[in-house]
Nucleic acid binder design. Structure first.
Lengths: 226, 226
DNA sequence: ATCCCTTGACTTGTATACAAGATTGTATTA
DNA sequence: TAATACAATCTTGTATACAAGTCAAGGGAT
């Protein structure tokens, strides 16, 4: 488990949740790994209570398995859930960008433009981490423009299953194409061109296709056998 | 708050979560009502811990608002969230029944047939509560047949916002038509007729349209002013 | 009467104590 | 040697104690 800096503004619970989630996505908490509420609590410098609440929540999202009085484990990567995440993203993103074409205000578009400009900036300096953050934020802003913020929160949780796979196959995605896609999405929204928007989203999602067979060969211990 | 019987098999946490959620859906915990962790804990006969964990979870789902050191309230019905729920259900249910047409096994279909038979049975005796339960179960089984169980769990949580509205407008839905719809969905799945399936789902969802204007006049104190 | 301050009874946030079950290593016994 | 009983030590589940902040009521001073 890697250290995560604690913000001043956040409660112990929020900090624990964020730290554990980030570690799961980054595979610093490995799939299948045994975890202990006490260990994590002392590592993070908080008590068991906020850690426990976070673990319960991640258990609900099928990211941690709890065996009472025995122990808790980071869930193995289950291709069943990964496929559900991919399915959900595809169905929702297409429906939502269509709605964003209808509803996006000038303010929404201004924010999206600022985001894309930053993506282009960080693309030049090859700052993959920043691009990753801006990528997530870009898609969130589209949901907000479409007045679907609650749905986005839910999408984010489900997507963690896919995010882990993405972490393992780090280099599968070409940042250049991603950033270009975002520019096309933005102009489609500006022009209220729903068909163009849906078309580019579909193409965009296909770029994230990863070779699960290869990952399974490289990291067999991380995957659930069915 | 109404009493909810505790099953032997469930933990205090599961019981608290189920009891509070049921009370929110049934409006026995009223929108806007002040709630106290201590009060609920003693009413349910458990300690603050499991109650607190449940409240945190419902807060994440935007069903309870927490003001630290001041108090917690059942969220007012916010038409923004109700509309997100309706949107989500429509987008997902249509995509999922299409997938169910592809993937449903004979076992899946057998279970659906049994469910529809029971719906017809309880329709004769006008048992609205049973129909409500079978309705939920019917849709869940379609998600399971389409291998989208995790997505269904998520859908269920979002739908609580709509379920509250449904509770208030109890009599708006004609059970007869609902049960008939389910029969048509089932035969569309059996025949792998995706277009027919999507068409009837769309028609089906329209039946749940409620007159929010009227509800707002009848229960103004339950609704969030924007 | 009005303003201000204090006090006490609430709230949620967090830490800790205890309960109950699972597991493992060890010692004892057949 | 092998099997079994037992104790120590884990685990999570639950209850409780304490911390810190909010708010309203009431008393006293102006």
């Amino acid at each position: 488990m890697k250290a995560v800096e604690r913000y001043n503004s956040e409660t112990a619970r929020e900090y624990a949740m964020r730290a554990i989630t980030e570690n799961i996505i980054s595979i610093d908490l490995e799939p299948g790994q045994l975890i202990s509420e006490n260990e994590i609590a002392s590592f993070l410098g908080v008590s068991r209570t906020p850690v426990r609440e976070s673990i319960q929540e991640l258990n609900k999202a099928a990211l941690i398995e709890i065996y009472p009085q025995r122990g808790s484990y980071v869930s193995l990567i289950d291709s069943k859930y990964v496929e559900e995440a991919v399915f959900l993203r595809k169905v929702l993103d297409i429906a939502v960008i269509e709605e964003a074409c209808n509803l996006a205000t000038e303010d929404d578009i201004a924010l999206l433009e600022e985001n894309v400009a930053l993506q282009e900036f960080y693309l030049k300096s090859n700052n993959t981490k920043k691009i990753f953050e801006l990528d997530n934020e870009f898609h969130r802003m589209i949901y907000v423009a479409a007045k679907k913020e609650m749905i986005h929160n839910m999408r984010k949780n489900v997507m963690i299953h896919f995010d882990r796979v993405r972490t393992l196959s780090m280099l599968a995605v070409k940042d250049t194409k991603i950033v270009a896609d975002h520019g096309i999405m933005l102009s489609a929204i500006k022009n209220k061109d729903k068909n163009k928007a849906k078309e580019i989203v579909e193409k965009h999602l296909d770029r994230y296709r990863v070779d699960q067979e290869e990952l399974l060969r490289t990291y067999p211990q991380y995957f659930a056998k069915e």
